[in-house]
Simulated assay, not measured.
Amino acid sequence: MTTQTLAVRIESALARGTLKLPAALLRILAGRPVIRDGQTLDVQTQMLLRLQKLRGDAALGGRTVARERALIDAQSRLLEPGAAQTLATDDIQVAGGDTPCAARIYRPAQIEPKAGALVFYHGGGFVIGSLDSHDGVCRALAERANCVVIAVDYRLAPEHPAPAGVDDAVAAFRDIAARADELDIDPTRLAVGGDSAGGNLSAVVSQITRGDTHSPCFQLLFYPAIDFVRDRASVRMFAEGFLLEKSSMDWFSGHYIPDGFDNGDPRVSPIYGDLEGVAPAIVITGGFDPLRDEGEDYAKALQAAGVNTTVSRHPSMIHGFVNFAGGVAGADAALTEGAHALRTALQH
């Protein structure tokens, strides 16, 4: 075990231990309740934000790209969820827009042959995040949904601005569907899902591939980024202090969308796309997330287009909660809700 790995384990144990303190003591340490828009911030999350502020990394974005990428990989290990059972994992390659993409398969031990599967796209503003940053999330989803999860490591900006990530996401989905026999999955029970930027890519893939022989059967969208044209009230309401800030959003979009590219192009802002006939969806949002309103607006747009869509707001949660579901009870409940919805969808 390296010194760095040991340090991460110690820090993770301390963080998890702190968040398990009795609620009354945690409230004293976290400070007075934070109430916005009739919602009260989860006390464990409030404590987590306080700890991050002490570390000097309470907000996403703003540093060098390399530093931000290292931070999300390190921070995700502190409170990441996981699986109680051993999962078989395999690192493979799938097709990408220009060159192959790395991918990772998670397979529960007792799963049936030709199982249903989730193609997962990680969050990170299209700039940060990796297979490793969401490894625990994928393990948790595979176990709780009892399905195969295939995580795709699409290209990131600014080295590869829009629509490179989209091209990879679409090509990867089509390749996985075409290789269903080889991967021992059922191409008729192939869902897409992800958080934040990954939710965006899932929505875009669902639109672009809806006419394919095998298109997504379900969309699992955790607090998706949906609209690069218009800021909604939640962006102003939660502009500072809740991990994803307005400045964070500007930093990510500035790296992702190149000069001259139309912010309203459905490949980056899927709320402006044709929604008729896309896969059923669940949209799970956090009450203290700047992206809350656009995610819920997308759910309403899907419903208006006749798409069977569930929208579920967890009012005490902030952006990025799937990555700390291993230490925050409310985040774990939201992740479980999504996994159970996926499990139900893949049984049909």
Results as ranks from 00 to 15, higher is better:
7 A>L: 15
8 V>M: 05
14 L>I: 15
27 R>F: 05
36 R>C: 04
37 D>Y: 03
40 T>M: 12
40 T>H: 03
41 L>R: 06
45 T>E: 08
46 Q>F: 02
47 M>W: 12
48 L>R: 00
50 R>N: 11
51 L>P: 01
51 L>A: 03
53 K>I: 01
57 D>H: 12
61 G>P: 05
61 G>Q: 00
77 R>S: 11
78 L>S: 04
78 L>Y: 03
83 A>P: 08
86 T>C: 09
104 R>P: 00
106 Y>S: 06
107 R>F: 08
109 A>S: 13
110 Q>C: 09
120 F>M: 14
124 G>C: 02
130 S>T: 08
131 L>G: 03
133 S>F: 05
136 G>D: 07
141 L>N: 04
148 V>E: 02
155 R>T: 10
162 A>H: 14
163 P>I: 08
172 A>W: 05
173 F>I: 11
174 R>G: 05
176 I>L: 01
176 I>H: 01
178 A>V: 04
187 P>H: 02
189 R>I: 13
209 T>E: 01
212 D>F: 03
214 H>F: 15
226 I>P: 06
227 D>M: 10
233 A>K: 12
245 E>C: 11
249 M>Y: 09
252 F>K: 06
262 D>Q: 01
264 G>W: 06
266 P>T: 11
269 S>C: 13
275 L>A: 10
277 G>F: 07
277 G>P: 03
277 G>R: 04
278 V>Y: 10
278 V>F: 06
281 A>L: 06
294 E>H: 12
296 E>T: 06
302 L>F: 13
306 G>D: 06
306 G>K: 09
311 V>L: 06
312 S>Y: 15
320 G>E: 01
340 H>F: 05
341 A>R: 15
343 R>Y: 13
344 T>P: 02
345 A>N: 10
346 L>H: 11
347 Q>T: 15
